[in-house]
Design a protein around this nucleic acid. Structure first.
Lengths: 307, 307
DNA sequence: TAAATAGTGTCTATGAGACAGTATCGT
DNA sequence: ACGATACTGTCTCATAGACACTATTTA
């Protein structure tokens, strides 16, 4: 419908061509072009086994990475992803990569950012759009969990390790140093960043630089840190967190997910008051745990929070 | 420094190649590739002249558009932009386009979103990353203001014209209808959208569709509406608004800018209380206005709000 | 002095944060 | 009974929203 409105049958350009004639003569191969890829940030929450029958299992935010079997960055860990095909939408490409790497379809996914510096890939000019996907760990598929494969889940920790104010003549620069740690059962990857907030004339301009990257391919450490910051901020004002939860959950489990993502402890009473509007009770309880059973909740079906 | 760490001189891949050898043999022309462009959303705030010496001048949010002189969409209005060159960073390309269209350098700019549907450009597959730039209207350059040129400023209005709840078996779908109006002194462009928030299982998935587009090229109406929503939300929790202000301004002028962006009236006393932390007084006043003079403010130099 | 804007004071409702207390399970 | 988690009540302080009031200018 939109298309029918669009085509201008009778308007001619300065060469006397109609749109149809112009398009027939258009040669897209005239210029060199960058390659375009999608990178997937697939997050889930996993539980660490606990020995004590009384204690709750600890929750960990995890991301799926793939060990590179080819140059460049051979042997380093990279985000799953690949080239965008000519005939597929950008988001379709992301969903296809997601399905290829994890078998997951129909889960939550949002576009994050497009990374387009020259030199971020030594092979050729590559512009990459990153997408963040969230899923409940129950649905984790063969490929992602298979120990023999080149894919593995890494627990994610992002910590501020330093903060510094530099006063210049044009204003202050606030430099935050962040450390990203990625831990699988076998490997430990790290990256460090400087995020400088340039408060010139009172207005902040943010710039992020990798200062160290161990075991992580390309600029993917930076992308992971960016995604985590986005996740942290969106969890505060959207219902995004429920994409990481199973259908039924206790409020304490939900709180644990908030805590592991924010890397910060929350007060139970306050957390419950805030979250109440988003969930609804069920009649079921989690029992057999060496302490008072807890009621199971689900997402409120009439949830009005809109992203 | 990062580069030195990266190169793996002695690691060989399954073909027995080192990274240097692999890269020498890499042929980037193997696959068809989409074209990549940047689109610029350049906003400013302009004043409408007022006849009454007592009344304040009304403020309008405006965006710069370019009239297309070629197919496709010949004669329609489009966002300024162009192809990304192989040797420039994505953000560099955006800054270059910004300078070419307006002469402006060093102003605020942020990446918005990357639009990658097939068929959004009839010439060939085009993936476009949009950037939003903000500037004080004092700095508006020859090209943008030149009446003879193909560029013009359009006042922007985005209004909700309808809202509807559709209850399906899987949950509710909240459909908002929005109307975008773009007005220059000569032309009036409009676009209408349906934004559907699919509240399946309590979690919202947003989808935006153009239902009508008059006088606007490509999917640029959708992009402008998206930018405006981002601007509206960021103005509430960042200091982004000051990029639209001159160095000195009155609090009422600042409030007017908020009001025109949010398309909503604010209460003066409350606005002032909230904004106080971000600004600092000067000794100067705006006078000659047929009412009590108003103190001029500037951005607080020690502003701690960080994007 | 009238018409307009500039600027301040204060009441109320709501929410965030902190903390203390009670309830209930399995061993 | 103990050790752990489940769940609730309430105090305080900060903030958002509404509204009324005073102050000051120029034609």
């Amino acid at each position: 419908m939109e298309k029918e409105n669009r085509i201008q049958f009778d308007i001619k350009d300065k060469n006397g061509l109609t749109e149809a004639e112009f398009l027939k003569g258009y040669n897209p191969a005239k210029y060199d072009r960058p390659s375009v890829t999608v990178d997937m940030l697939i997050f889930t929450v996993r539980e660490r086994e606990e020995q004590n029958y009384r204690k709750l299992t600890e929750k960990k935010l995890s991301i799926l990475l793939i060990k590179r079997g080819e140059h460049p960055y051979l042997g380093k860990w990279a985000l799953p992803g690949g080239f965008v095909k000519m005939e597929e939408d950008l988001e379709e490409a992301a969903r296809r990569e997601l399905a290829e790497e994890t078998g997951l379809t129909g889960i939550y996914m949002e576009q994050l950012y497009t990374w387009g510096d020259t030199g971020r890939d030594p092979r050729t000019r590559v512009i990459s759009t990153s997408y963040m996907a969230l899923t409940d760990s129950r649905y984790l598929s063969p490929r992602g969990m298979d120990d023999a494969s080149d894919a593995a889940w890494f627990d994610v920790k992002l910590k501020q390790i330093d903060e510094e104010r530099r006063d210049t003549e044009n204003g202050t620069i606030l430099v935050q140093k962040l450390k990203l740690s990625l831990t699988s059962n076998k490997e430990n990857l790290t990256a460090e960043f400087e995020i400088s907030n340039n408060l010139m004339r009172g207005m902040s301009i943010t710039e992020r630089r990798i200062t160290k990257s161990e075991g992580i391919a390309f600029d993917h450490g930076k992308i992971i840190a960016y995604a985590l910051e986005r996740l942290r901020s969106k969890i505060m004002y959207t219902d995004i967190v429920f994409h990481l939860m199973p259908e039924l959950f206790t409020l304490t489990e939900l709180q644990q997910v908030y805590e592991t993502i924010l890397d910060k402890e929350l007060l139970k009473a306050n957390f419950r008051r805030k979250i109440t509007a988003m969930v609804e009770e069920t009649e079921q309880y989690r029992t057999d745990a060496g302490h008072r059973p807890s009621k199971l909740y689900r997402v409120h079906s009439e949830n009005n929070i809109v992203n």
